[in-house]
Design a protein around this nucleic acid. Structure first.
Length: 585
RNA sequence: GCGCCCGUAGCUCAGCAGGAUAGAGCAACAGCCUUCUAAGCUGUGGGUCAGGCGUUCGAAUCGCCUCGGGCGUACCA
């Protein structure tokens, strides 16, 4: 199904063309003045410049050229050249009935599916997920779902941070604490123990400790770097420790992501790129791209058009070990082999812009990816605390993601809790809390910083995830009662009696357009504003009309269709955002 | 230094391929539950869109400048 905007744009483009103007001027948009019209076309004013003619004259020409159709109820002209459009209720009903019959509510999948790899999550192993990891996970998951819904073939990859300095830091710190372990004995020839010499709690303490120490103690940092290098070169004991770290850490990461309803097709990491590094480096050298500079191996990526100095892309550090540019490049080699992607999206902190700019340039320059492969940097803003600085707990530390979720869930109070089973209450808290957190994040444009205020997140009033869920639960409750009355089959749009009903219907008719926009712009926030508006319009209508009290069968059919479609729109939308609604709350 | 981002209501933020009267939420105040869940709905107050200049019939939106804040700027990720 074409979207309503497309239908109107089609009609007006034809009219512009027929009247002798450029067809592109006929683009319709949703009205900025709902008191005057439902849609508008502003092309007459744009055309005035090009055709040296008064906008109103052009608008009149267009009006005269308008073909008869079953869509438009009325067109008004307003100074200086606005074309204001009202559509026929009959058209709207036909359109909405079409949506109702389709499982995707009239949304058309792309005719040119792409292979898209989305790289998000990016957790460091051996380090608890904290609120800083929230955005990548939540945004990436939504972009994955949006692109899949749009018909693309999407592969999600967590891209674990498991090969860099953080591993060397842990290994070195362990060697300081427990030098007697066989892993550090280079002459050791036997099998290493199956059990790790540490547990999750130890790891969560060791990494921050080592990381902090390396920033103060240069000698310590050098030793950690050495450990990193030896790990990468394949020192047996270190590889064994690395495997222990992975085994201890990964299940916990998976638990955490699962709690966020975030899942990955692949849990590959930087370490998986390791096998691809030697050949990649050799090729870059052979082709003359990579050269030695200050002891390190680099590829120049600066371009003439740059308005700032762009440092070269570092392929190997001066000690020969890999840096995150190396692993990101090698990962592109791996992804090309495994998935031949048309597009690779990186959902990462926007402060990493320059890093990815260099990686992308280097990948294209050296032919790791071809020119037409789209490499997208989806940089998100920082999560700040109330003070406007990167979020910290009151004690000054980072807040663990799981603790944050616990806090939000604790603040969810369920009405009539006594009447429900303990399990249901628990599930409700999880469902509502997750909606609050995800919606609270996704409603912000990706690139914006936002202030993470736990009280605000848990307040659940106004424009929040729980508001959307609450609206859906209201609809489900009515539908359930109508099911009991056995009238559910009547659902069919055949007209509108109330203004609020038509308002809601118009909002529903925009569903496909909104999803297309969100996909095109990589912007889940567009879906959030849309469902807030839709839920709000439903609630206005809800207060105005007692659906269960309606006796007229035809009217009831329309009302039923309206709320069913509202639920459908909200349901698909929140699923694309990455959360679900309960049956009651 | 160079570059990028931001500055819109008391607070937190939308809006920015120029378009009509700049929108939400929170907070404040006033209403609405014998009737489908009040986590809701209605209304009121609140703005030199940081400031200046320019382009345009029209600028929060585009360009230039100034002021304020944040971030980035080869061996962390």
């Amino acid at each position: 199904m074409d979207t309503v905007i497309e239908v109107l744009s089609g009609i007006f483009s034809q009219a512009f063309e027929k009247a002798g103007y450029d067809a592109g001027l006929g683009r319709a948009v949703v009205s900025a003045r709902p008191d005057l019209c439902q849609f508008q076309v502003n092309g007459a004013m744009g055309a005035a410049k090009v055709y040296h003619k008064a906008p109103m004259m052009i608008a009149k020409d267009v009006l005269a050229a308008l073909d008869e159709n079953e869509v438009i109820e009325r067109v008004d002209l307003a100074a200086p050249g606005f074309i204001n459009i009202m559509v026929k209720d009959s058209f709207l009903c036909r359109y909405l009935n079409g949506m109702l019959e389709d499982k995707n509510l009239g949304f058309e999948k792309t005719k040119e599916p792409k292979n898209i790899v989305i790289d998000y999550g990016g957790p460091n192993v051996a380090k608890a997920l904290h609120v800083g990891h929230l955005r990548s996970a939540v945004i990436g998951e939504s972009l994955k779902r949006l692109n899949r819904f749009a018909g693309h073939n999407v592969i999600s990859d967590a891209h674990l941070g498991d090969w860099g300095l953080q591993m060397g830091l842990i290994i070195y710190e362990l060697s300081v604490r427990k030098p007697e372990l066989c892993y550090f004995d280079e002459s050791y020839q036997g099998e290493y123990p199956e059990a790790a010499p540490f547990d999750l709690k130890d790891l969560e303490e060791i990494y921050p400790f080592a990381s902090a120490k390396s920033k103060e103690d240069e000698d310590y940092l050098i030793k950690a770097r050495n450990a990193t290098q030896e790990l990468q070169k394949g020192r047996r004991g270190y590889r064994a420790l690395w495997a222990h770290i992975m085994n201890v850490s990964l299940p916990d990461l998976k638990r955490n992501y699962s709690r966020l309803a975030v899942d990955f097709d692949f849990w590959k990491g930087e370490s998986d790129a390791d096998n691809y590094i030697p050949a990649m480096v050799k090729e870059m050298k052979d082709k003359g791209f990579a050269y030695e500079s200050q002891g390190a191996l680099v590829v120049d990526v600066e371009e003439e058009s740059d308005n700032q100095p762009i440092p070269p892309c570092m392929i190997l550090k001066s000690d020969g070990s890999a840096i995150y540019e190396t692993t990101d490049l090698a990962t592109l080699v791996q992804r090309k082999e495994d998935f031949s992607p048309d597009r690779v999206m990186y959902v990462v902190d926007k402060r990493q812009w320059l890093h990815f700019e260099r990686v992308f340039r280097c990948a294209k320059k050296t032919g790791i990816v071809d020119e037409k492969t789209e490499l997208s940097f989806i940089g998100f803003g920082t999560v700040n605390g109330k003070d406007g600085k990167p979020f910290k707990t009151r004690a000054g530390g980072t807040l663990k993601l799981s603790d944050m979720l616990d806090m939000v869930e604790d603040k969810v109070s369920i009405k009539g809790e006594e009447a429900l089973g303990a399990d249901e209450v628990l599930n409700l808290k999880k469902t509502i809390g997750l909606a609050a957190v995800k919606y609270g994040d996704l409603m912000n444009p990706i690139e914006s910083n936002y202030i993470f205020d736990i009280d605000k997140f848990a307040s659940f009033e106004g424009n929040t995830g729980p508001y959307i869920l609450y609206t859906m639960v209201r609809i489900k409750s009515i539908l359930e009662k109508l099911r009991e009355k056995g009238v559910e089959a009547l659902a069919c749009f055949n007209g509108f009696s109330l203004g609020s009903e038509r308002e809601l219907a118009l909002a529903l008719s925009r569903f496909s357009y909104i999803i297309h926009e969100a996909v095109k712009k990589d912007a889940p926030s567009i879906v959030c504003s849309y469902i807030y508006e839709t839920a709000n319009k439903f609630n206005v209508f809800y207060h105005e009309k007692k659906i269960l009290a309606e006796d007229d069968v035809k009217v009831l059919g329309s009302l039923l269709a309206l709320i069913k479609l509202t639920l459908g729109v909200l349901d698909i939308s929140i699923n694309l955002l990455g959360f679900n609604a309960p049956e009651r709350m």
